[in-house]
């Protein structure tokens, strides 16, 4: 019996519910499957993730990390730009991490665009070391 990770179960269950399957049937099938693959311990994590997934709907989750808090207007501009670049409705979660020293990191799925001062400094250091 193949083992899948939490997110895979959530996506599969969510897709079935979207198709119109009854929520109770889906959860039964899911539980049977988890018990067979001896992964019942994942259940709490799956429930939490399911709630997040529901709140997202068809939106694409995007994580943004910034070095310094910026103004509301600035945040709106970033959100608009990101949404435009992705071309679909996005759900943006923004966190602040002062260790970045400034700049921004945008992550959507496996892809990360790193424009933080920390990364730039690291690449400058690398450039100087191998000049």
């Amino acid at each position: 019996m193949a083992h899948y990770r939490t997110q895979a179960y959530v996506e599969a269950a969510y897709a079935l519910i979207q198709e119109g399957k009854k929520a109770s049937d889906v959860s039964q099938a899911l539980l049977r499957r988890l018990s067979k693959s001896k992964q019942l311990s994942l259940l709490p994590a799956i429930i939490d993730a399911m709630q997040i997934r529901e709140s997202l709907g068809t939106k694409i989750p995007v994580a943004i990390t910034i070095g310094r808090d910026f103004s509301k207007a600035g945040a709106a501009r970033v959100e608009a730009t990101v949404a435009q670049a992705i071309g679909r409705e996005t759900s943006i979660e923004t966190t602040t991490d002062s260790s970045l020293l400034g700049g921004i990191i945008i992550q959507q799925g496996d892809d990360v665009i790193d424009a933080s001062v920390k990364a730039l400094a690291a690449s400058l250091k690398n450039y100087l070391a191998h000049m």
């Binding site: 997110q7 992550q107 496996d110 892809d111 990360v112 665009i113 790193d114 424009a115 730039l120 400058l124």
Partner: peptide, 29 residues
């Protein structure tokens, strides 16, 4: 000659690690 371009990365997350072997999610490409 040094250009300060933002970097585009392809990342994943470590799921488990042990005995020198790591299993990671993401890294789809």
């Amino acid at each position: 000659q040094f250009s300060a371009q933002p970097t585009k990365k392809h990342v994943g997350t470590v799921l488990e690690s042990g005995d020198g072997i790591v299993r990671a999610s993401g890294l789809s490409q």
